[in-house]
Amino acid sequence: MNPKSHSTIRLATALLLAAASFEAALEAAPGDRKNSTVRDVARHDDLSNKLRMAQQKDPLVELGPAAGKVEEDPSVKNAPSDFIENSTVISYRGFLTFVPKQALLHVPEKHEPRLEIEKGAKVQTFQQFLARNRGWIRTIEVSREQALGHKPFPEATVEAIKNSSSIVVATYQKGPISVLPPKEPEEEENDALLGESTSTPEIR
């Protein structure tokens, strides 16, 4: 018997075994269920009655009366805004990524076309995209206070950002972060007052 015949036999045996085990699985399936009682499939009338009974008593309502802004659906009204609309895109050569709006600290004119969505480009995380494009994207780690606009950047940093030939992205712990405009002293005072007047009572 030549090797080809052996292969043919092995293949046939494998197929037979596979078919047998599939058939066995089919045969075994009905008995495997924990509830083997057979019944006629439920009809519309049965389910309508069941629903009528169920609707008389909603256990969720019984936990406590509706409260808060009951006339509004917060899952719709306060739903987060769309991720793409709330981001700035950076795309290049078939790949693109998103960073929060206000995370780009500097975009040289020559790189502005890269802030358009490239049709058909594959989406990557910022870290993946950065690894491919370090030649023209720079990151600058910012503090939480700087991101909130509470603390200005040192002048030297501002100059370096302004003169960079790369796109500069603000990051916090390597993740892109929006940088809010610097707050005027008046706003800071208001914030401080707000903090005092609305401080959370101690929770016991």
Binding site: K174, P176, I177, L180
Partner: peptide, 8 residues
């Protein structure tokens, strides 16, 4: 303030 950070 809607400060947004994408977590790595």
């Amino acid at each position: 303030d809607e400060l947004i950070w994408d977590v790595a």
